[in-house]
Each structure stands twice: as C-alpha cells, then as structure tokens.
C-alpha cells in the first residue's frame, strides 16, 4: 500500500478514536476504505428541541491538506435551519477556513484550527441545532421563519423528522 499522507494518518486516527469512544448522539466514519476523505455521519436531534428524535444523515468531505483546512459538512437531505444552506451545507464558524473572518466577529476558540476534530465539529453541530444563530444566517427563509413564526418553524421541522423516520 502507498505510504499514507498526513491527512490520511490523522483521519484514521480520528476514526479509531471515534470507534473506541464516541460521544452520545453521534456516529461517523468513512464511507468506504478506498476514500478516507469522504465520511458519512449521523447526528441525533438534541432533546427538548423540534429536532428531538430525529436522526440526520450528513456527509463530511475533507480537504487534502486536512487538518490545516476544515472539512465541509453537508446534510443530506437538507435540513431546515437558519445556519444550513438550502443545499444542506452547514455554515458555522468552526468550519470556516483560516483567515476568512475579516470582521473578526468570530471568537478564536470557535474557529477552525488543526487541534479541532471531527468529534468537536459534530458536537458544535448538535449545539447549533439546539441554538440557531440568526445573526449570520445561511438560510434567510429559515431565519425569518425562526424569528417571526416559531410555531410554524417547529411544525415544519417535526414533519421533516416524522418523514425521515418513515412515519
């Protein structure tokens, strides 16, 4: 087998770590052994939110220079949420590549750095589901709905959850 790159080594290590001891509500791993740069993961909806009981599949695509650059996380099917683009791509500060925050409104501890990990990303995503951030919204319609008509927002998400569970 060809010698492994830094990114491959690191991803294998993270995969091992996640298998051994994964936090509750999160499952993640490479789709196949041929391509370690593409992962599939399942995120559980946090309790006491409209996302409760849902299990949301997503893909993680890692750059070749991982861990210098962050992966891209995309929910498939897309999820209604202020911080998720209509195509399912998640927009939170931990997933922003370095040097892309000209306004400096993101706190440094929330930004991408090589010491972050898949586990930390998925935990951030869970807390993002629980607490949407409308100030830097990715999906304007969802932002509006969340702000102006919370009931409808909750309803739509519950329906999505039911549908995804096949109920």
């Amino acid at each position: 087998m060809a010698p492994k790159s830094t990114a491959q080594k690191r991803l294998l290590k993270e995969y091992q770590q996640l298998c051994k001891d994964s936090p509750p509500g999160i499952i993640a791993g490479p789709v196949s052994e041929d391509d370690i740069f593409l992962w599939e993961c399942l995120v559980e909806g946090p309790p006491d939110t409209p996302y409760e009981n849902g299990v949301f599949p997503a893909t993680l695509t890692f750059p070749k220079d991982y861990p210098l650059g962050p992966p891209v996380l995309k929910f498939n099917p897309p999820l209604l949420h202020p911080n998720i683009y209509a195509d399912g791509t998640v927009c939170i500060s931990i997933l922003h590549p370095p040097g892309e925050d000209p306004n400096q409104y993101e706190r440094p501890e929330e930004r991408w750095s090589p010491v972050q990990s898949v586990e930390k990303i998925l935990l951030s995503v869970m807390s993002m589901l629980a607490e949407p951030n409308c100030e830097s919204g990715a999906n304007v319609d969802a932002c509006k709905l969340f702000r102006d008509n919370r009931q409808e927002y909750d309803n739509q998400i519950r329906q999505h959850v039911m549908k995804s569970l096949g109920l």
């Binding site: 210098l68 370095p98 040097g99 440094p108 501890e109 929330e110 930004r111 750095s113 090589p114 010491v115």
Partner: peptide, 17 residues
C-alpha cells in the same frame, strides 16, 4: 500552521483555539 496564518497579517496565536 504559521504559513496558513501568515496571510491575514494579524497576530498569530497558539494552535490550540
């Protein structure tokens, strides 16, 4: 890490966020 941080011209902090 330093190389990626150098581009934005700001102070560079410890890798640990």
């Amino acid at each position: 890490y330093l190389k990626t941080q150098l581009t934005n011209g700001q102070l560079i902090r410890c890798i640990d966020t």
